[in-house]
Design a protein around this nucleic acid. Structure first.
Length: 808
RNA sequence: GGGAGUUUAGCUCAGUUGGCUAGAGCAUCUGCCUUACAAGCAGGAGGUCAUAGGUUCGAGUCCUAUAACUCCCACCA
C-alpha cells in the first residue's frame, strides 16, 4: 500500500541507494542488443555546479532512460575534466597564490587534492539528482590511463604530419602567462580612445594621419600600409615615414587588405597588434618587433616606457604625443576586444615556440562533418559551420602551465630535433623520464618539453577515453561513432569542434551520429549564471532539497532544446502538482487492483477508448523522444494523464466501486484498462520522474513483471488493436460529459445533482447505448433517450436537492 | 558587417509536415467538501498569433520586407 502522502526526500534517497547498490543501470549488452552510447560531458572541475549544468544533464538523463525503456543497452559513462587552466585558476583562487610561486610538483599536488574535494561534491549531487550514468567507474582527464590516450593521440598526429612545432605568432594571455586558442577568446566591449597621429614624411614637414587605438605599440611599428588602389595615398609608396615621438623611419608598403574608407586609409603595422598584422608579417616578411613581455609589460623597445604594464604605457605615451604635438585628435570609442575567457584580459599576439594542430588546411572536411552530423535543434548546425568558416588560427595546443598532460617529447641538445616517446612507454613525463634511444644525430642528451597540453587536446578524445572504461582498448574507435554528444551551445566551437577534428584526423570518421544542444539557464534578469554565483539560495543542492529531484527534472525537461531560459521558481509548481497527482491517482486506482489477475476480458467501450488513446500516445511519445523533443513528449503524456484522471477515472469510478450493481465483468474490464494504462504511463513518466514512478512500481507492479526496478523494464506496448471510430466516439462522450458539467456549473448545482433526462440525437446511437451505464453514472442522469440524426443533445431539468431528498 | 534565434492571453510558454471555433500552466472570476487528491474538481472571461505585403480553396505555420530583443562570429587602421 502506498503512503497517504508521498515523502519525496525520503523516498528519493532510498531509491538512489537501491539503484546504486543493485547496479540497476549497469551496462551489460546482451547478444544482438542494440547499443545506445552517450559521450557524456565531463564537468570542468573549477567551481560549483549551477542550475544550468544540472538542467543540461537532466536532458541527457531523460534520453538515456528513454533508450533503456526502449530495450537498448545504454552506455552512459561519466567523467571529470580535471586538468588544465580552468582547474589551475580555481586552485590559485582557493590557495590565494599564483602557480609560479610554488614548486611545480607541489602545485600539481595541491591541484589533485582540490579537484578530489570538488569531485566528491559533484558525485553527491549527481547521485542526489538520480542520475543513471555509471557513478561507480569514471574517468578523469588527468588520470594515467587518460594521459596514455592523449599522448598516443599526439604521437599519431605527429606521425601523420598534422601537428607541428613552430616558432610562430600565437594568442597570448599576459595574465595567465600562457598561449591560448582561438576558441578561448571572448569578445568584450571595452572603452578606449581612437588616436589620430602625425606621421611625418621623412625629410619634409608634411605629415599623413594614421589612426590607432594602440599608441603604445608605436615602439614596434614595422611599416605603414596603403591600399594599392588608393589614388590619394599611392604617392607615399616611394617615401619613408617617421614614427611619432619614437622618431625612427619605416617604409610604406601596399596591400589589398587595407580599407581605404577607414580612417585616413593609412594604417600602421606592428608585430603584433591584431590578426591582420599577423597576416602582413608573414606575407611581407616583416621584422618581428616585440613590444611586450610575457607578463604584459613594455619591453626595452619602448625606451623610457619599458617595464610599464601595457595600459599604463599607453597612457604615458599618449601624454608624450600630446606634449610633442603629434596627436591631432582623440575620439572616445567603445570597441570589442578579444579577451581570454578565463580571466577577461585582452589577448596579445606573441611569437613563441608552440605546438599546433593544423586545422586551417582541413577546413573543408571539418565543414562537411558539420553537414553530416544530426544537430538537434537543427539551427545549431549553422553555429558550427559559421565557426569553421571563420577559423583564422591553427589550434595551438601547448600551454606554458603546469597542471596538464605533458607532451611526450624531448628535444635533442645537439640538433634540437624533437624526440617522441615510444608508444609502449606511455604515459611519460619528460620532466621525470628520459628517452630510451639516442637521437638520430647520435646525441644522447635531451631537454624535456616543459609545456603541457591544453585541456581540450585531451577532452577532444572523450569518445576514446570514455569507451576505454568499458573496452579497455585505450586509444581506439570500436564504439565510435557514438550515438549522442550532448552539450550546451557554448561548447559547439570548442569541445564539439575539437572532438570532430580529432576523430576525423585519427580514425577518418565522425565521433558521433547526433548532437543534442541545450540552451543556457540564465538568471531571472537574463544574465549568465556563473559558477561563482551557483552556491547561493538557488544552488542545485537547495533546489533539490526544496522541490525534490523529480520536480527539478520535470522543470529541466520542460525547457525547449537549445533555447536560453530565465530561471524561475514558478515553473516548479507545475511539477509539484504533477507528482502529487500521479501519487494520488495511482493510490486510487491501485485500491481496486488488490486482487487483480492480469487476463484478457471483454472490454467496455470507454475502456477500449482509453486503451486506444494510450496506444496512440505511446507511439507519439517515443517518436518525440527519438527526436530529442523531450518537452513535447512530456507535454503529450501529461495531457493524456490529466485526461485519464479527470475524465476516464471519473467515468469508470462507479463501475470499480460497485461490481454488485454493474456486474463483475464490467468491473474487470475497467480494472484491466486501469492496470495497463497506469502501468504504461508510469513507464513513460519514468525517464523524467524516476523516483516516484519507482516507488509506485515497486509497491505494486513489479511482481507482475518480475522486475527489480521500473528502470529495468521496457515501455508497455499493448497488442490489442481497436476500431478507428472508438477514439472519436469516446471523445464525443467526454465532450458530452463536459457539457453536462458546464450545465450544472452554470446552474450553480453540485456535480452530483441529478438530471431528469437527457436526449441524444446522433448517428452513433449504438455507441451511446453501450456506454450508457458509464454516462448515466458520471452525470447522474435518470433517463436517457436516443434519436438518430444530426448530432445534438438536449438536457433536461436538474433535480433540486430537496426533491432529491424526498424521493429517496 | 556576416549568421542564428525570439516576438502567440496580464505573466511563463506549447503549437511536427499549412486544415475545422488558436492551446497549457500561473494569475483572475464563478461554482462545487463529488466515497483518490481543497497541494483538489467543474466552469467562465481573456489573443486582429510583432508589423506590412505575397503564395494558397485555406497561413500562427510557407515566401518577401520591416521593427524590437537575445545569442554566436567578424570588426582593434
Amino acid at each position: 500500500m502506498l503512503d497517504k502522502k508521498y515523502n519525496a526526500e525520503e523516498k528519493e534517497q532510498k531509491w538512489q541507494e537501491y539503484w546504486y547498490d543493485n547496479d540497476i543501470y549497469k551496462f551489460e549488452p546482451k547478444e544482438n542488443q542494440k547499443i545506445y552510447s552517450i559521450d557524456t560531458p565531463p564537468p570542468t572541475v573549477n567551481g560549483k555546479i549551477h542550475m544550468g549544468h544540472l538542467s543540461s544533464y537532466m536532458h541527457i538523463e531523460t534520453i538515456a532512460r528513454h533508450h533503456r525503456m526502449k530495450g537498448e543497452a545504454v552506455y552512459f559513462p561519466f567523467g571529470f575534466d580535471d586538468n588544465g587552466l580552468p582547474t589551475e585558476r580555481y586552485v590559485e583562487k582557493v590557495i590565494k597564490k599564483r602557480a609560479q610561486e610554488l614548486p611545480r610538483a607541489k602545485f600539481i599536488e595541491i591541484c589533485l587534492d582540490e579537484t578530489k574535494k570538488l569531485e566528491e561534491e559533484f558525485f553527491a549531487l549527481y547521485k542526489r539528482a538520480g542520475f543513471s550514468c555509471n557513478l561507480k567507474t569514471h574517468y578523469s582527464s588527468i588520470a594515467p590511463r587518460t594521459q596514455k590516450i592523449s599522448q598516443k593521440s599526439f604521437i599519431d598526429l605527429y606521425n601523420k604530419g598534422l601537428v607541428y612545432h613552430a616558432e610562430s605568432p600565437s594568442l597570448w594571455c599576459t595574465e595567465c602567462r600562457t598561449a591560448c586558442a582561438q576558441s578561448e577568446l571572448e569578445s568584450k566591449d571595452i572603452e578606449s580612445t581612437f588616436n589620430y597621429l602625425k606621421f611625418y614624411i621623412s625629410g619634409t614637414d608634411e605629415y599623413v594621419t594614421v589612426a590607432t587605438t594602440r599608441p603604445e605599440m608605436l615602439c614596434g611599428v614595422c611599416c605603414v600600409f596603403v591600399n594599392p588602389k588608393d589614388i590619394k595615398n599611392i604617392h607615399l609608396l616611394t617615401k619613408k615615414l617617421v614614427v611619432p615621438y619614437f622618431g625612427y623611419e619605416v617604409p610604406v608598403l601596399a596591400d589589398d587588405l587595407v580599407d581605404m574608407e577607414k580612417g585616413s586609409g593609412v594604417v600602421m603595422c606592428c608585430t603584433f597588434g591584431d590578426t591582420v598584422d599577423k597576416e602582413w608579417q608573414r606575407k611581407h616578411k616583416l621584422p618581428i618587433k616585440k613590444c611586450f613581455t610575457d607578463d604584459g609589460r613594455m619591453t626595452e623597445l619602448a625606451g623610457e616606457f619599458a617595464g610599464m604594464p601595457i595600459l599604463e604605457g599607453r597612457q604615458a605615451i599618449i601624454a608624450k604625443l600630446k606634449e610633442n604635438d603629434f596627436l591631432i585628435k582623440q575620439e572616445n570609442i567603445v570597441h570589442s576586444v578579444s579577451t581570454h575567457e578565463r580571466c577577461g584580459t585582452p589577448v596579445e599576439i606573441a611569437v613563441k615556440n608552440q605546438w599546433f594542430i593544423d586545422v586551417l588546411s582541413h577546413k573543408d572536411e571539418l565543414y562537411k562533418a558539420g553537414l553530416d552530423l544530426n544537430w538537434y535543434p537543427k539551427s545549431m548546425r549553422a553555429r558550427y559551420l559559421n565557426w569553421v568558416e571563420n577559423l583564422s588560427w591553427n589550434w595551438c595546443i601547448s600551454r606554458q602551465r603546469y597542471f596538464g598532460i605533458p607532451f611526450p617529447v624531448w628535444y635533442c641538445k645537439n640538433c634540437g630535433k624533437p624526440k617522441l616517446a615510444d608508444e609502449s612507454d606511455l604515459p611519460v613525463d619528460p620532466l621525470k623520464d628520459s628517452p630510451k634511444t639516442p637521437c638520430e644525430c647520435g646525441c644522447n642528451e635531451f631537454a624535456p618539453e616543459t609545456d603541457v597540453m591544453d585541456t581540450w587536446a585531451t577532452s577532444s578524445l572523450t569518445p576514446q577515453i570514455s569507451t576505454d572504461l568499458y573496452t579497455n582498448k585505450g586509444f581506439d574507435d570500436t564504439m565510435v561513432p557514438m550515438n549522442l554528444r550532448p552539450n550546451a551551445h557554448d561548447n559547439i566551437r570548442v569541445w564539439d569542434f575539437y572532438t570532430i577534428t580529432k576523430s576525423l584526423y585519427h580514425f577518418g570518421k565522425l565521433p558521433w551520429k547526433d548532437l543534442m544542444i541545450s540552451g543556457y539557464v540564465t538568471s531571472p534578469d537574463g544574465s549568465k549564471l556563473a559558477k561563482s554565483k551557483g552556491n547561493g539560495a538557488d544552488s542545485p543542492q537547495n533546489i533539490i532539497k526544496t522541490y525534490s529531484a523529480d520536480v527539478t527534472r520535470y522543470w529541466a525537461n520542460n525547457l525547449t532544446l537549445g533555447k536560453d531560459t530565465a530561471f524561475s521558481l514558478v515553473e516548479f509548481d507545475n511539477g509539484k502538482k504533477l507528482v502529487n497527482k500521479i501519487w494520488n491517482a495511482s493510490k486510487f486506482v491501485m485500491m481496486f487492483l488488490e486482487n487483480y489477475e492480469p487476463k484478457k476480458v471483454n472490454l467496455e467501450v470507454m475502456d477500449k477508448w482509453i486503451l486506444a488513446r494510450y496506444n496512440e500516445l505511446v507511439k507519439k511519445f517515443i517518436g518525440y523522444l527519438d527526436k530529442y523533443e523531450i518537452a513535447l513528449a512530456v507535454n503529450e503524456l501529461e495531457k493524456f494523464f490529466w485526461n485519464f484522471c479527470d475524465n476516464y477515472i471519473e467515468i469508470v469510478k462507479r463501475r470499480l466501486y460497485n461490481p454488485d450493481v454493474y456486474g463483475e465483468e464490467k468491473c474487470n474490464s475497467a480494472k484491466y484498462a486501469c492496470f495497463n494504462v497506469l502501468l504504461g504511463m508510469l513507464k513513460m513518466f519514468a525517464p523524467v520522474l524516476p523516483h516516484i514512478t519507482e516507488e509506485i512500481y515497486m509497491d505494486y507492479f513489479a511482481k507482475f513483471e518480475n522486475a527489480k526496478s521500473i528502470h529495468a523494464t521496457q515501455y508497455l506496448v499493448l497488442d490489442e488493436k481497436f476500431d478507428d471510430e472508438i477514439i472519436a466516439n469516446g471523445d464525443k462522450l467526454v465532450e458530452l460529459v463536459s457539457k453536462v458539467r458546464q450545465y450544472k456549473s452554470e446552474n450553480k448545482a453540485s456535480l452530483k445533482a441529478e438530471i431528469e433526462e437527457v436526449t441524444i440525437t446522433s448517428n452513433i446511437t449504438d455507441f451511446f447505448k453501450q456506454a450508457e451505464p458509464d454516462l448515466v453514472g458520471v452525470c447522474s442522469i435518470r433517463k436517457m433517450n436516443y434519436n438518430d440524426g444530426e448530432y445534438s443533445v438536449e438536457l433536461g431539468k436538474i433535480v433540486p436537492p430537496e426533491a432529491d431528498a424526498q424521493n429517496q
